[in-house]
Structure formats: C-alpha cells, structure tokens
Amino acid sequence: MSILINENTRILVQGITGNEGTRATKFMLAYGSKVVAGVTPGKGGQSVESVPVYNSIKEALVKHPEINCSVILVPPKFAKAAMLEAIENKIKLINIITEFIPIHDVAECIAKAKLAGCIIIGPTSVGIISPGKCKIGVIGGDTNKAYMQGNIGIISKSGGMSSETAYIFKLAGIGQSTVVSIGGDVVNGFSFKDALEMFEKDPETKAVVIFGEIGGTYEEEAAAFIKAKEFTKPCAAFISGKFAEALPNVTLGHAGAIIEGGKGSRESKVKALREAGVMVAEVHHELVDLIKKALKIWLATHILR
C-alpha cells in the first residue's frame, strides 16, 4: 500500500498546455504515472505529450470517467476557478502545485472541497510520490534519484526539502512508502495531522518523518494528534527556521514561515512534539539516526508482544 496515490491513480492535469503543466506532465509520464487527460479552457482538441486536452473537466470526464485525481498547475489568478471546477466535478484528490494563491481563495475552496468530500493537497505543494507506483506534480523532477520504495512516510512543508529528506534516507538504505509535499502556505488543504491519520492505517508505512517550518500551528496540531495516541508509529521531526526567529516579520522563502504574535515558534513546536514522544532532530541529517533507533525499539517491542 501507500497513501493518497498508487498504481490505480488516474491523473488529470489542469493547465496542461502551460509551461509548468507540460513540464509536470513529462515528469509524470516518464515515471510511469497514468496521466489520462489535460484541461485548458479554449485549447480542447490539442494534445500534450500524447495526452488529450479538453476545454473543461466535464468534457474530460465523459471520455475518461476513471479520472480520480487532478493536478493543478495554472497561474495563481486562475487557480480559484480551476479548484472550484475540480470540486464541482467531485475529483477526489486535488493537488495544487501553483504558488502565491490568495489566502481568501484557498480558504473558500477548502471549505467547498470539504462539503463535496474532496481532498485538497497544497497549494504550493511540489506533489506526491509513492515510489515505484505513481507520482503526481513535479516532485523528484526528471531524475527521481531521491526516491526508492520502502517503509518510511515523509510529510514536508518545504518542496525542496521533501527530496532532500527522502535522499538522506535513501543514502542510508531506507526507502519511502509515500512522500507528501503539503506546502508551506498559511492555510492549506492537507496538514501533517491529515497525513498522519492516513499513514497510521497504511501497513506499508513503519515510521513517519515530519519536515516542519516555523509559523502556523500544523506541527502543534500533529503533536496533539500523536499525544492522543491517534498515531502510534515511530515519528521523527525536524523544524527549520531557528535563525529566522531572531528576525521578526521577515519572510524567508515560504509564506508560512512568518511569525506573528509569537505563535508557531520553533520552540513551541519542538516542545509540543517532544512531549508527544516525537524525536526532534537539531540538525536535519540527524533524522536518519533517530528513525533507525526508533525503528529498532519499535520492532523489538512489537516482537516482544
């Protein structure tokens, strides 16, 4: 198994004729992902990398009723309309790669997605990969060298660091079940907690790694979830932004890494996670040893039982 995506995922690309959309489509096809259709209003009838393009999702669904996932790569101005179209057509999994979408648009779409029973991942996600099965978005680029099938789940706010985190584990011979880039925006569709909930039920996942950043409360929310024993597998985390905290009100790379009113500080996140029994690495590459150690203990206690 794995979470969110697997060999049965059938992908629609919204914004497929744009530079970003075409690039992502190439990456996904090269990995063996099943991209079955694309949508760009006004460009119906064309094709991108042999994938047929339609004017609307409705049209695409007539020809490809098997579509169960949409990847959105449209410019930020058009993102709201694209998200609403996917929601109205009840696409179950919607992964938003687009960055810089206004927060009011995102919050409105998340509210509507919830009512429609759709999952939104992102915005500002680089995608999701279940190594050996499927990948969506631009995660892994064209080399995919960071990824290898295995038993670690990775959840990351930072797109770039989802690959770097996977890669340090791969160098140590540890592969991944699924790697989810949730995005670092103030409000996003899918939090650490949401991913933990799925990883808990996934037998292939033996442990989970969280890459968090200062700002927001998703790390604290995850800590509460773990503390309540809703997630019981070994978990290690790294929270970046220690130095940035000395610089109030500076946006560094990610919109989410803003400290407002002292909430969402690294200290508060590390404390909450440690209290929940999560091992927190001080330096990023220490995550590998923490997980190795935790897996040993976890395996030992489970065999004893």
Partner: peptide
C-alpha cells in the same frame, strides 16, 4: 532554494559557524 537555505543556515549555527 527556500526551504534548504533556512535548514542549512540553522545547521551552520548549530555547529558554531556564524553566517
């Protein structure tokens, strides 16, 4: 890279370096 650069500067400070 945004996420990487912050992670790296944090690490440099952890090892006693001063950016």
């Amino acid at each position: 890279g945004g996420g990487a650069s912050i992670t790296c500067v944090d690490a440099l400070i952890s090892y006693g370096g001063k950016p």
